[in-house]
């Protein structure tokens, strides 16, 4: 496999036991790959399973059938069937996921949240501190906020902390779920710049970006999700 990330005939549906076992089809027959140094954008109207694909790649959602292959150094891991410990190892070394929502332990400062992600991603303590400061600075997070827990921040501020956290460690696969949804133009440009830096450094990037300008700025190849089938209700 030369791709950094590859979906092979992936299908997913939700079985809603609380609604009498109703099956909600999400996606079927998803086949695509992202190469190192490539940026790809999942495209399609809402409800077509873009977010689910991204979450499946990260192991946050289960995959019913098919394989989701991630290159992890010399080996390839199928996230669809990997044991929890393997997925955790993959997240620590290989994959970053930047969501729209920040979920952190209360009471931990913004700087610490970002630094901790750097250390978990293999940076030394010093590197993590330097890079965290650098990222928060570039993302225009006012320095007076760095020592405060992000729970008290505005949506845009929280999102920037989240981006810094997702980008601090140089992981080869980057999954982005609307990373700029609540940012202003200036900060979007910074994010686009950061993403481009990571791409140029060889990361494979798969994202959901609704904003056309942002999509253009990161120069992503479009993957049309509507061309995949939808899983049939059982």
């Amino acid at each position: 496999m030369t791709a950094a990330l590859e979906f092979r005939d992936v299908a997913k549906s939700f079985t809603l036991h609380l609604r009498g076992g109703a099956v909600l089809p999400v996606i079927a027959g998803a086949n695509f790959s992202v190469a190192p140094g490539e940026c790809a954008v999942l495209w399609g109207p809402s409800g077509t399973g873009k977010s689910s694909l991204l979450r499946m790649a990260y192991g946050n959602y289960r995959c019913d059938t098919g394989a989701i292959l991630v290159r992890d150094g010399a080996r390839v891991v199928d996230v669809a069937t990997a044991a929890p410990r393997e997925v955790l190892a993959l997240r620590a070394r290989t994959m970053s996921y930047v969501s729209q929502f920040l979920r952190v332990i209360p009471r931990v400062s913004a700087q610490d949240v970002v630094e901790a992600a750097g250390r978990e991603g293999g940076l030394s303590e010093g590197e993590a501190r330097d890079r965290a400061g650098d990222l928060l600075f570039r993302l225009n997070l006012p320095e007076r906020l760095w020592d405060l827990p992000p729970a008290t921040f505005s949506g845009g501020e929280q999102q920037r902390v989240n981006i810094a956290r997702g980008l601090i460690a140089p992981r080869p696969v980057l999954l982005l779920d609307e990373p700029t949804a609540s940012l202003d133009g200036q900060n979007r440009a910074v994010v686009a710049e950061l993403i481009e830096e990571r791409r140029a450094a060889g990361a494979a990037i798969l994202g959901i970006v609704h904003d056309a300008a942002m999509r253009e700025a990161i120069g992503g190849r479009i993957i049309d999700v509507t061309r995949f089938g939808t899983a049939r209700a059982a």
Binding site: F14, G59, N60, Y61, P84
Partner: peptide, 11 residues
Amino acid sequence: GLTDQVLDDPA
């Protein structure tokens, strides 16, 4: 399973 998987996509 994985905590976030079980909580976000409970089977």
